Amino acid sequence: MRNIMLVIEYDGTNYWGWQSQENFPSIQEEIEKTIKKVTGEKVVLYGSGRTDAKVHALGHVANFQTESTIPGERFKYALNLKLPDDIRIISSQEVPIDFHARYSATHKRYVYKIYNGEPERPLLRNHTCHVRYPLDIKPMKEAAEFFIGTHDFKSFRGRKTSIKSSVRTIHSLDIKRNGDIIEITVEGNSFLRNMVRIIVGTLIEVGAGKRNKYEIPEIIEKRERKSAGRTAPAQGLFLEKVFYK
């Protein structure tokens, strides 16, 4: 038995997230079906985490075990020939049998993209959150500093989750503007359901002058979802990279 690691890029627009689910298309299901076409084996693909419907990835990592003799680095080519156009394997390789895409990961990096302009942009609508009113990134950057470190992020956790502990560590949270595009980049050891999107939604309110940056520590302390901002739309979120030792 061999263990194969995949680094995957996908446009999540037409999918209900990473995880396989009945009656709805998913990234995991599409890749598992393609692996079966290539190897003749029904495999379980283990992802580095879940992404929600319409969320994208530049570097999602997954692994599966196989008895196929295809060289690890050749899986990329074999799978890409049969995958849908909106899913691509960026790289593939054989890894130790005890490697697990989720449990072997040390931390992850997400990028959230905001289009902060007036006219609607058809080519951006599936890959950014459109905010028409002006956003001041200076207070957003200052507010972002309060998120860095180890905190109980219960206020920034989606409602439908069974995770017992909401304590997480954010290593960095950077915000930059390039014209009408604002990018919020966050790295952390792991993330709760909707955590990045709720943080972004709260920072948008700070940038719009609807919240004061000094409210962030209070929101964290309250540990109540209703105290934080709205959940930012899914289409602006990208899983950029998963890190391993």
Rank of each mutant, 00 (worst) to 15 (best):
P119Y: 15
L123A: 12
G209Q: 04
R121K: 13
S166R: 02
Q93M: 15
F147W: 03
V242I: 11
T66C: 13
G236C: 06
S190D: 13
L173G: 01
T106W: 10
S165P: 02
E73I: 09
L135Q: 07
F24G: 00
A232Q: 03
N212C: 03
D11T: 01
V131M: 10
W18G: 01
A53P: 06
S26V: 09
G47W: 13
G201R: 02
K176L: 14
I31Q: 12
G201C: 06
M195G: 02
V111T: 08
T69P: 07
V167Q: 12
S68I: 10
V7A: 09
L237A: 09
F24C: 01
E183T: 04
T13S: 15
L237Q: 05
M140Y: 05
I184R: 05
I219L: 08
F156Y: 13
A101F: 12
S165A: 09
K108D: 09
R121A: 15
K36R: 13
S48V: 00
E221F: 11
V186F: 10
Y112H: 01
Y112F: 06
E118Q: 04
K33F: 15
I87Q: 11
E67D: 08
S92W: 15
H60Q: 15
Y10T: 01
D152E: 09
I27C: 10
T231Y: 14
Y77L: 12
N63S: 07
G17Y: 04
I181E: 14
Y112Q: 00
P96S: 08
F146G: 00
R177E: 14
K138D: 14
I170D: 04
F64L: 06
D180V: 01
E145K: 07
A143G: 08
L135N: 07
G229T: 03
V95D: 11
H151T: 00
G188H: 06
T39Q: 11
N126L: 10
H107Y: 12
G47Y: 09
G72S: 13
G149D: 03
R159H: 13
W16R: 02
K241D: 04
K37G: 04
N212M: 04
P217G: 04
H107P: 00
E94G: 06
V111D: 14
N194H: 15
E9P: 00
R102Y: 15
V95L: 11
F146K: 00
P119R: 10
K222D: 09
I220W: 06
P122Y: 15
V186G: 05
G59C: 04
D52N: 03
D180L: 06
L237T: 02
A234L: 05
F99C: 00
P139L: 08
H60W: 12
Q28W: 11
R2H: 13
K245L: 12
P96F: 07
D98H: 04
